[in-house]
């Protein structure tokens, strides 16, 4: 079963890390990721650029509105995600705990079961057709 682990953190705090701190965090996270990938448990992962570079398209009754910035103003921002393949929620929680140890301080991980998943963006047979 697939789960998405959505990473939320205070981006102004993350942005205040020195280059060395940032590199060290990324290196520790990479150990966790590589370990999961070797077990075949890790799907796509991504780190997103700051919310200042975000644009939001808001549907309205008429023409959709294009708005600068992220969809929601929150204390913690959506900064990246992992897709993992696990049998139980307990296992995913353990992975999130490992991520938290690799990247301590503030922040949260939201664990969401995946409903529909296309590793190549659409069903393979539709792409081939």
């Amino acid at each position: 079963m697939q789960y998405a682990i959505l990473c939320y953190n205070q981006e102004d705090v993350v942005g205040a890390w020195t280059k060395e701190e940032d590199d060290a965090v990324m290196a520790r996270l990479m150990v966790v990721q590589t370990n999961l990938a070797k077990q075949g448990k890790l799907g796509p992962t991504a780190r997103l650029l700051p919310t200042t570079s975000a644009t939001t398209l808001r549907k309205t009754a008429g023409e959709p509105m294009v708005i600068d910035g992220p969809f929601a103003e929150t204390k913690e921002q959506f900064l990246g995600f992992y897709v993992v393949n696990c049998d139980t929620l307990e296992e995913v929680i353990q992975i999130a705990k490992d991520l938290a140890i690799a990247n301590p301080g503030v922040g949260s991980y939201e664990i969401r079961p995946v409903g529909v998943f296309f590793p190549h963006g659409a069903p393979q047979e539709a792409i081939d057709a």
Binding site: V13, V14, A16, W17, E21
Partner: peptide, 15 residues
Amino acid sequence: MTDLDWIEAAITAAR
């Protein structure tokens, strides 16, 4: 990252 590192980052960010 030690306690001190993230506290420092949090203080710098909040400053």
